[in-house]
């Protein structure tokens, strides 16, 4: 398999952005105070795929997704969503995307219903559609009982689901989800996975970042491994894992101490 020579030849991105791709990143570079966070990331999310972005902490996943969604201006490189330049025509690109950023506050003094309606109105939906979709989303995410509760009083998992619902309300064609499963209990995670699978089956495209290899292997059809701001491998999940499990392949690619030596004083 080609997965041994990363990035795999099968999915090595062409030099120019692919207009048919749901998301097409080319040569993204971003440094914070001289420290590079992302150094030359290129990847293509095919339409209708569920694309996983995996990597250790600080690999540049959040930076990459922030640039792709128009939240963070890159030092160099381009991002296209269905052929629309995110940094050339941000308003048009943002209409096509639903975004769930990681580690970001919500307007949590709103109720769950208000939060989703707010997102709908910001996207320019009319009131009837906004209210209808709000109720359907609350129902689908199991938040109907908490519709009139302030989001600040939600548990971490509920808040994540409310934020995800808010990112879906304008019927985007591409979902960009940064760590959607963080601090989500297994039942809610299954709930979210089901909704994402429906979304993809209906023609939508998704890119998710995650630490949980198992989940990515089971859920995604494509995956890219990121470390230190570079793509180490990218392609379909089967190409990248090349026979072993994704987790083993990930540790092998990223490297690092597999077994812990020392800390002898911890052995009581």
């Amino acid at each position: 398999m080609s997965g041994l020579v990363p990035p795999s030849a099968a999915s090595a991105p062409s030099p120019a952005a692919v207009p048919s791709a749901a998301l097409s990143l080319r040569g993204l570079v971003k440094a914070f105070g001289g420290k590079p966070a992302v150094s030359g990331i290129s990847l293509d999310v095919p339409v209708g795929s569920l694309y996983g972005l995996v990597g250790p902490n600080g690999a540049g996943k959040t930076t990459t997704l922030s640039i792709a969604t128009g939240l963070l201006r890159p030092d160099a490189g381009t991002a296209h969503v269905f052929g629309v330049d995110v940094w050339g025509d941000p308003l048009a690109a943002k209409r096509l995307m639903g975004v769930l950023p990681d580690g970001v506050r919500l307007f949590d003094r709103l109720t769950g219903a208000q939060l989703i309606t707010y997102a709908a109105l910001l996207h320019g939906l009319d009131r009837r559609t906004a209210v209808e979709r709000t109720h359907e989303l609350l129902e689908a995410f199991g938040l109907a009982d908490a519709a009139a509760t302030l989001v600040v009083d939600y548990s971490a998992g509920m808040a994540k689901k409310a934020a995800l619902a808010a990112s879906l309300v304008h019927a985007p064609r591409l979902l960009v989800l940064d760590e959607p499963f963080e601090s989500v209990d297994p039942v809610s995670a299954a709930n979210i996975r089901g909704i994402l699978a429906d979304f993809v089956a209906g023609g939508g495209s998704v890119i998710v970042s995650s630490h949980v290899m198992d989940l990515v292997q089971r859920m995604c059809d494509h995956v890219a491994v990121v470390a230190a701001g570079c793509i180490l491998a990218a392609g379909t999940v089967d190409e990248v894992r090349a026979g072993s499990t994704l987790e083993e392949r990930f540790v092998e690619l990223v490297g690092g101490p597999g077994r812990t030596e020392g800390l002898t004083w911890l052995r009581t």
């Binding site: 009319d126 906004a130 509760t149 009083d153 939600y154």
Partner: peptide, 20 residues
């Protein structure tokens, strides 16, 4: 947790302002 005074659907003011 407490329910806000937003009516049954929890929309409150959002049901009143212009939908823009």
């Amino acid at each position: 947790a407490r329910a806000a005074r937003g009516g049954r659907d929890g929309l409150g003011l959002f049901a009143l302002v212009p939908a823009t």
